[in-house]
Design a protein around this nucleic acid. Sequence first.
DNA 1: CGATTTTTTGAATGTTTTTGAAAGAAAAGG
DNA 2: CCTTTTCTTTCAAAAACATTCAAAAAATCG
Lengths: 247, 247
Amino acid sequence: MLTEERQRFILEQLEQTPVVKLKDLMTALGASESTIRRDLGELEDAGKLRRIHGGAERLPQTKSEPSVQEKATQHLTAKAQIAKAAAAMVPAHACIFLDAGTTTAQMIPMLAGRDVTVVTTGVDNASALADANIEAYILGGKIKSATKATVGAETVSGLQKRHFDYAFLGTNGIHPKFGLTTPDAEEAVVKTTAINQSHTAVVLADASKFGEVSNALFAKINQVVILTPSLAQLSPVYADYPNIQEV
Amino acid sequence: MLTEERQRFILEQLEQTPVVKLKDLMTALGASESTIRRDLGELEDAGKLRRIHGGAERLPQTKSEPSVQEKATQHLTAKAQIAKAAAAMVPAHACIFLDAGTTTAQMIPMLAGRDVTVVTTGVDNASALADANIEAYILGGKIKSATKATVGAETVSGLQKRHFDYAFLGTNGIHPKFGLTTPDAEEAVVKTTAINQSHTAVVLADASKFGEVSNALFAKINQVVILTPSLAQLSPVYADYPNIQEV
DNA sequence: CGATTTTTTGAATGTTTTTGAAAGAAAAGG
DNA sequence: CCTTTTCTTTCAAAAACATTCAAAAAATCG
């Protein structure tokens, strides 16, 4: 484990929680007390954090990554376009899986009044489905505060007891070599399971996702149908895939 | 638990409620009397609060935007009063069940920053818990669109795999003869199961619930602890129950 | 390529801070 | 008044701290 890796990890921890404990860092990083202390000292000298007895705390001016709300307004029209096409794929009496996330959320108003059953892992999606009077189920599990999605063994085993006509998922990255990826490993497991339990898996992706690679793989490109609004704008690499469809 | 974490929590508490009790802080933070006293002393020296007999009080704010938050905290509604008392019952490291509903939802900001694990059936509560960065789990199941609570066999069997130190529930009716009742039979089953799986079950009820009877029974009065803000106003019938407590 | 220097690491040392408990003083409440 | 609760002070144990030193790893140079 390199010095830079450790220090980056410490700062990432501090973005999630206002204080980190030295002992937790020792076990998490597998380094000795001395090493962690040196890292904390250097990071403090660099003005990245403040040391406190027992660990370190985040500086007050920490800027956060784009929140759920900010992301929601960014690619709105493109997302709505894909969502409309995705909702049109759903036949009557179908049972579908709806991933957590703002992209799939756009499908909900377009499913209102339809005879469909929806299973989701997104807390916000569950709320919207209830508002739209759609028959909805949420899978139990631990709630990730960043995305408000349920994850973990309970969610996965809940998925394995079901089968879906269609699964609709979002993604953070689509790459010819590295496949479909998402930042969170636990969410990746959930997505993979949902794909396995569905007859047809559909990924909703706007142009900004192509060529991107995130942390955790959840499927290869040819395992799913990909809907995108702007096939022409993309690198010609993606033209070889018949399962990437323009809407 | 680090010094900074404790002191941060104490100040956050004082934003919610004008006074904090030393004993409540002890159970909430899992620290000794001496430690809490030292924290209060340091925070007083730093000009962050004023110590009073039995705890500490918030300083009179002369800052920018006092209107919204102070009004919300100074004139505590009946529900917030009960929620505050209920949250004070929760010790550190506890695992609690939080019923769906607006009454129990009021407990969430008062649990923020606490070392507790919360399991809920309320979709909206799950969202609020995630916002407050509280470790939260939602039970899977069908979502009732009226209340956005999960119900059904999946929810009940999920409950039966767990155990809680405390369960906090709302109710629609409290009656000496007909017990605790709620309009929906499926939600009643969930509440009953939650009570059975908990060491102590606590029902939060304002005065309007007493004497009312709804459709489905979920518990007898003496099976739970009932918190209410206005014991004196109630019919003398309820004075016979030692488990009905004024807050 | 090997030898030497520099950097990084983990353990050992003694010091400081934090913590919880105890005992008596002060305050609150009947 | 007495009883109970809360408060302050003191003390020893535990945890966390800075510092030093030698071994291991990496980089540099002849």
